[in-house]
Structure formats: C-alpha cells, structure tokens
Amino acid sequence: MLGRRVFNDGNGGCDPKADEFKEMVLELMVLAGVFNISDFIPSLEWLDLQEVQAKMKKLHKQFDAFLTNIIEEHEASNYKNEKHKDLLLLKEETDDDGNKLTYIEIKNMFAAGKDTSSNDIPNLPYLQTVIKETFRLHPSTPLSLPRIASESCEIFGYHVPKSSTLLVNVWAIARDPKEWVDPLGFKPERFLLGGEKCDVDVKGNDFEVIPFGAGRRICVGMSLGLRMVQLLTATLAHSFDWELENGLNAEKKNKDEGYGLTLQRIVPLSVHPKPRLSPHVFSTLI
C-alpha cells in the first residue's frame, strides 16, 4: 500500500515503525471488544468507569499521527514519479461521479483495505466453498459493529426505540437450524452446484451468512480480505503438507473460541509445515 516494507523479512529489512503499528492494531482489537459496562447501562457512559473511551481517544490520536507522518514522508519523496503504484495514488484518481478520496478515507483503508484480484482463484471452486464455509462457522466479527436506530420501529413483534444501540449476531445467524442443514457441521459441499446453498455468497447479498455485514455499512475491506484469505490459503495448501504439533489428532484439538470484537481461538493453532515442492519454488513464493 505504501511501497515500503513494514514487516520483518528475516534479513533485517524491517521498518522500525512496524512494531509500533502492530501494537496499535492489537490494542484497537482489544479495546473494541472489551466488555464495557457503559454499553449495557448507558446512564453510566459519561463516567467512563473502565476508561475505554479515554484509551480509544488516545489511541486514535496515535493512529492519526502515525499515518499522517507516513503520508507526509511519502509525499516528500516525490512518490508520483515512482514506478511503483501504491494506495496513496488513489488520492489523484476520481470515481464515476468525479469525486476524489480524501486522506481521511485513505487512512481508514489501513484498517480495512481496497479491492484486489488474483487470476487463479476463479479456477478453484472447491477452495472457494471451503472459505465460505469457514466464514460461515467462524466469522471474523461474530457480532456486527454497533449501530444506532435512527427511528423507532418494530421487528418481528419487538419494539426498538429510537437511538437504541443495535448488534447483529452474525455468528448465530450462520448457525440457525432453520436456515442450514446440519448447521454445526463443516460441509463446504453445501455451496457447490446442486448443494443446499449453491446460490448463496458471503458478500452481503444473502442474509443467512453475512460475515462482512450488509447494506451501506458493509465492511470496506471485504474484497481485500476475501481475496487475501483465498489466495493465502491456496498458496499454503499447495506449497506444504501440514501436521498438528506433537502428532495431535484433529478431533482432539481444542476448538473453543474466545470473546472479543474479532473471533479468535482460546488456544492458538500450532502446526508444522512440510515442504512439498522443489526448493527453488519457495524462494519464488517469498
């Protein structure tokens, strides 16, 4: 996105600011998913008992200063004359309505993403169904980000007052037995031609599985996230054979999930890769 490396490549080619950025991202995920008393007792919100708001505001200032500095350094390096095209060049482009992106919107993309494509993915239909089924059972954001009801309304007999905070249980919807056959089973075939959900996608058009949300507030980074997961999964599956650590059987592996803004394992997955291609191929992959 920036034309510079921000992760350690093992040869000392690491941006010194990489650790700072990663720490801020991790802190953001923790704060956004923390159990906040004010969410359940709004009258106490002004007290900020757990200092969540104060920490969020401080983190926002750090993020903004960090990204502003990167953008200013990039502009000072006369990036327009570089052969490498990166995310900041989007500021010079206009959409069909003649509008240009602002730097505020570009900064937001660092937490989401922009569209990308890869030519091999359309030729791997079963891989796509595996990714869909994974997103169904384990959506990255089990509860959608909070929304505020703009008007009072009634949904399925429930009265929703104006200004209520609303959360959509994406995790539960995708496991609803009224919508899915054997909802707890991992069955990618359900998305193949002839399967029960062959016409269902995960891009917000089919409400029984919306890992990225839906409507106008759908995840900005959906296209990038979906393509990256597909591409990386295909590359790892093609390049290596995999075994669980210490010869552990997959059925005995702890699959419990932890509470938070993003869905994570309580016990991290630890596996051993075994190269299955010629050695020179892996240098190309890196």
Rank of each mutant, 00 (worst) to 15 (best):
A174R: 04
E92N: 10
G247T: 03
D120M: 04
E45D: 09
G213S: 04
D9M: 13
H272G: 00
S118G: 05
R217H: 11
F21S: 10
K187M: 12
K57N: 14
V52R: 14
G3W: 10
A111H: 13
S43V: 10
A174L: 06
V181F: 05
E73A: 02
Y259W: 07
F212G: 04
P125M: 09
P42Q: 10
V209F: 02
V34R: 12
I286Y: 13
E154Q: 13
D9L: 13
A234V: 02
M29Y: 11
Y79K: 08
D97W: 01
K107Y: 04
S283M: 06
F63N: 04
L2P: 00
Q50N: 04
P183W: 09
H74D: 15
K61F: 01
F110V: 08
N249C: 02
E105R: 10
G98W: 11
F66E: 07
F191N: 02
I218R: 06
K85D: 03
E92P: 00
G10P: 11
F156S: 11
G194L: 07
G98Y: 12
F63S: 06
N119L: 14
N36W: 13
A250T: 07
M56T: 02
M228D: 06
R175M: 02
A111E: 01
G33L: 01
L269G: 09
N246E: 12
F21C: 15
L232T: 15
V209Y: 05
K132R: 15
F156Q: 12
